[in-house]
Amino acid sequence: MAGVWILAESREPTLELLSAGIDIAAQLGVKVAAFALSSQLAEEYIKCGCDEVMLLPPLAAGQPLESYVPVIVEEALLNGPDIILIGASQRGREIAARAAAALNTGLCSGCTGLRLDQEKKQLVMERMLFGGAAVQTVVCETRPQMATIPPRTFEQAQPAEGHQGEVRQLPAAPPSPVTVVERTPKTSEAVDITEAKTVVCVGRGVGKQEDIALARELAGVLGGEVGCSRPVAEDLRWLPEELYLGISGKKVKPDLYIGVGVAGQIQHVSGIRDSKVIVGINRDENAPIFEAADYGIVGDLYDIVPKLVKEIKAALKI
């Protein structure tokens, strides 16, 4: 089946892309198809408005998910979809890039918004450029038009009364030259930082791991959570990966963001742009965080944070 195709690693992102796909397909007057990893999910996708589900058979032991690329490419060559939307997980990004290369078509990576140009029957897609300093609008001149879309960009599709569709079984993935020898699932003990009303963010200006306690204390009096910059999670490994904010990390929209020893480079700021109020604490008066902040406090964080805690406690009488 041609039309709009949806591919994501799991249920939630598939339903999100499905709602966007249904919308575009209606405007184009075409159908929506999705890939599914189980017949149970296939049924749910159909209930939620999918016209056809392409059921991927289970992988052999040691085959990574990316082994489906040849199967997906083959289906696309046979059926000629107009559009393929793929969930921008890391695996999704690899699958999309390889499929686009095999299909000689264009791929808009990290697409944060899209609409249909009715006249040209073309997707108009937006994405970030230069670490988030700019927004780029692109169209894809080749077919299929492809995009990878981050989680939570769209609302999930909801079950539509009595919606019918077909399930089609796809062939098994060929043996993969990449073999998985070990898997360590993530133990997700980290809080969901995107839910926090107040985020105190630890940057590399915090000199020692123990000193994160300072930020925790500040977050404590504010009833908030502690997040961090990418190097604090990735290079220093002081905090879990799920807590780093920015273009490649989590995007947050708290009422209050306080950066503690965060430089405020554009890749970080892209993830906190939608905060209601931004406070920056940095000893370098020229640090970029002051360009992005409502309230900038210039000085040593080891001096400022305890004072802030004291003043907040006094003001809130705690």
């Binding site: 791929l107 780029q136 309230y295």
Partner: peptide, 20 residues
């Protein structure tokens, strides 16, 4: 394959007040 139809700076209105 992709054609760029526009590039716009992502702007952000902030007060940029500075304190000691």
């Amino acid at each position: 394959c992709l054609k760029t139809t526009g590039i716009l700076a992502a702007t952000m209105e902030r007060r940029r007040l500075k304190f000691t």
